[in-house]
Every structure is written in structure tokens, then in C-alpha cells.
Simulated assay, not measured.
Amino acid sequence: MPFTFSEIIVLFFTYSVIGWIWETIYCSIKDHHYDYRGFLFGPYCPVYGFAVTTILICTYRIQNNIFLLYVVGVIVATIFEYFASVFLQYVFHMKLWDYSHLWGNIQGRVAPIISLFWGIGVVFLVKVIQPFIQKLITWEEIKTHGYLALIIVIVMGTDFILTIFSVEKLHMSTKSWNERLNTRMKLDEGKLNQAFDKLMETLSWNQKRFLTSFPQLKFTDTKKFNQFKNRWIKKRRES
């Protein structure tokens, strides 16, 4: 094993934060408004942490071979993205991204052009970013003797539990609202939109963040809610 257990935890946390920063900046520029990205409450995206840490471990013996590094990076990143999508859909009934419009996609979860991009990112990460990050983590290990890893586990573990409750509450609310919208279809569109706006005001900050920061988010069992949600997001951004 090229890293100690506490180093792996700190690596995971570090790249979760870096991933959150990258995704927040990129999506905010692309969408022309601030997007607080990430599935959890805190400023970190665990999917990046898991993927990068796994890549660093899997490529430890081939990091001097650029071609093998690129290929393994593509494979590992694609597998993570696919199973992250499956996990979100079947555990939380959510879809945060959809590549159905891209050539060669698999169930809209992964696509060749995205995977090839991840490969480039992995090479850049291992060759340029990781040497600097490793120096910081080695210094941190000497200074904290692994206690930082313990704090990270407590903080992110608590965050994960709170997020599960928040998402499940949002899912149950959307199912309830979906049923209400279906029963009110005889109302005109204006009254339906007003009723939906009132329902949305009852959401918490984090639940509204999910809907606005992930415009492709869909609950797989609330078709009518998804339609009105898209209109609500557009109206919110224009105001």
C-alpha cells in the first residue's frame, strides 16, 4: 500500500474539496450564476475524493508510463461515474447528470467524450497536482499524527447522515406534490404555477440548492413535478 490509512482519508478529503472548487467554478461560469455544487452540505464532492484516491492507488506502479496512466484513469473514472449514477438513482431516486444527448453514452450515465476528458484530467492530476499535495499531506501527518483524519471522518460522516435525511425528506415532499399536481390538472396553468410556487417556498435552503444547482436533477417517480420544477428554476433565474 503506497499510503497509510490516515493519508488515504486526508487525500480523499483534499480531492473532494478540490473537486468541489473546480465544479463550482466551472458550472457557475457555464450557467452564468453561482452554483453551490456538491451532494453534501459542506464544500466537498466525495465522488472526486473516491475516484482520485482509487486512481492514485491503482496507478502507483505505472505513473511513469503516460499511456497506461491515461488508460487506467479513463477506466477507473468511468466506472466510478457509472456506479455513482446508479447509486443516486436507486437509493435516492435522483439523476444529477444525463449524457443521453452524447454519442455512445450508456444509459445516459457515462459517455466516451466525458471519459476521455477524465483520462486527461488524471494524467494532469498525477503528474502536476499530486506531487505538491503529497508534500502537504506528509507535513500534515508529521504535525497532527493522524488526528486530522479522525476529524474528517466525524465531520463528513455527520454531513452524510444529515444529507440523507434532507434528500429523503425532499423526495417524499416531491412525491406528495406530484400527486397534488396530478389531481389539480383541471386548473388553468397560471393557478397551477402559483400553487407550485407556494409549495416550493416550504423547501429548506439545501433542498432549493439541489434543484437550482443541479438543473438536470430528476426524481424518477415524479414526472409531473419534474416538469413544473424546470419552469420554476427558469423563473427563479430570470428574477
Rank of each mutant, 00 (worst) to 15 (best):
M1D: 10
P2H: 12
I9N: 05
L11F: 09
T14V: 15
S16V: 01
I18W: 09
G19R: 06
G19V: 04
E23G: 08
T24H: 07
I25M: 14
S28I: 09
S28Y: 08
S28P: 09
D35H: 14
D35A: 11
Y36W: 15
F39H: 04
F41N: 02
P43Y: 10
P43S: 07
Y44P: 00
A51M: 07
I55W: 01
I57D: 02
I62R: 07
Q63F: 07
F67D: 02
L69T: 06
L69D: 00
V74F: 07
T78P: 03
F83Y: 15
A84I: 05
L88F: 14
Q89P: 03
Q89I: 04
V91S: 14
F92K: 02
M94A: 15
D98Q: 06
L102T: 10
G104N: 11
G108P: 00
S115G: 07
F117Q: 05
F117P: 00
I120P: 01
G121E: 07
F124Q: 11
V128A: 15
P131E: 11
I137S: 04
I137Y: 06
K143L: 15
H145G: 12
L148C: 12
L148S: 14
L148D: 08
L150E: 10
L150W: 14
I152C: 12
V153L: 14
I154S: 09
T158H: 11
D159N: 14
T163W: 00
I164W: 15
F165Y: 14
L170V: 04
M172F: 13
S176N: 13
N178L: 04
R180G: 00
L181F: 10
N182R: 10
T183K: 13
R184M: 15
M185Q: 11
K186Q: 12
L192G: 07
K198A: 10
N206R: 09
L217W: 05
D221A: 06
T222G: 03
K224H: 10
K224G: 00
K224S: 10
Q227D: 09
Q227T: 10
W232G: 02
W232F: 08
K234W: 03
K235W: 01
R237A: 04
